[in-house]
Design a protein around this nucleic acid. Sequence first.
DNA 1: ACATTAGTTCAAAATAATTTGAATTAGAGG
DNA 2: CCTCTAATTCAAATTATTTTGAACTAATGT
Lengths: 150, 150
Amino acid sequence: MEEKRECREDTLPLPPEVEKSLCRCGGIAGLVERLPEDETLARASALHRALADPLRLKVLAMLAVQPLCVCVIKAVLGIADSKLSYHLGVLRKAGLIAGEAQGNWIVYRLTDDGAAWAARPGMSHDDRSDTVDAERSRPAAGRRSRTSAE
Amino acid sequence: MEEKRECREDTLPLPPEVEKSLCRCGGIAGLVERLPEDETLARASALHRALADPLRLKVLAMLAVQPLCVCVIKAVLGIADSKLSYHLGVLRKAGLIAGEAQGNWIVYRLTDDGAAWAARPGMSHDDRSDTVDAERSRPAAGRRSRTSAE
DNA sequence: ACATTAGTTCAAAATAATTTGAATTAGAGG
DNA sequence: CCTCTAATTCAAATTATTTTGAACTAATGT
């Protein structure tokens, strides 16, 4: 039952730079230990999925200004009832917003989680738009495929 | 050319609570002015879309430990080459990681953006898993549909 | 009771993202 | 030159998300 951590990944040839640092962190086994649990990853990715749509981000931005009933949100976005309802449902199920009935209306507001995300950088009203794009994305800067270009 | 901002949204009956605060912020027009531009929303949602997958978050977590070649990432995740390549492509196009050729290998590392996101709460290794869930999501707490339940 | 308004739900259709496996490229080494 | 390995690309198949329009529910007012 020796648990002394082996340094070399004997079964896998590696680039020297990677092998050295991987060695210092306990090899592949050591690396794996440092990763979040699968459930943590699942929850985080689900959250991002809820935020992965411009309409939904716009709804969050609106609710960051003040609580609103569905009819106002609809008036601003100019989309069909059922479509809006779908997107509100996505945000609600993700725990980012909550709705409360008021007479014949439903007033939605941000939850604490929702408020935290609505305040995130890249979302504020007066945000840089630098457009560094292009030059981004390419397999490995000078290797593989002439067929590049997006 | 009067630009005095009207308070009442005459065309749209609203719940009193909403109407009052909407009034204070310049009505629907005032609300719209406070929203991020569409391009900002598009960029932010694209970013979240890249983060909206557990495998990809795991890759970010791995690269947060140290730069790695594709073969090590593959060994940890245990998925097919082409599948991994696809996900690396998504992260690369989102500007979260970058790859550099080293001999026959490609070593990927986090970009500054990638490092910022990998460090985000909800992603750290020893993170709470509280599971408040259930009780979340429901149209409006006591209105509409008996057909509830997810 | 009836009609209206505000929102949700459902199922089908349209789109988009992901997975799979085969083909391909490029570097290393014999 | 040939082969091996590392990794990417492509196209087809699968799966997930989004959109649409019609049907529905609940509250409000008459």
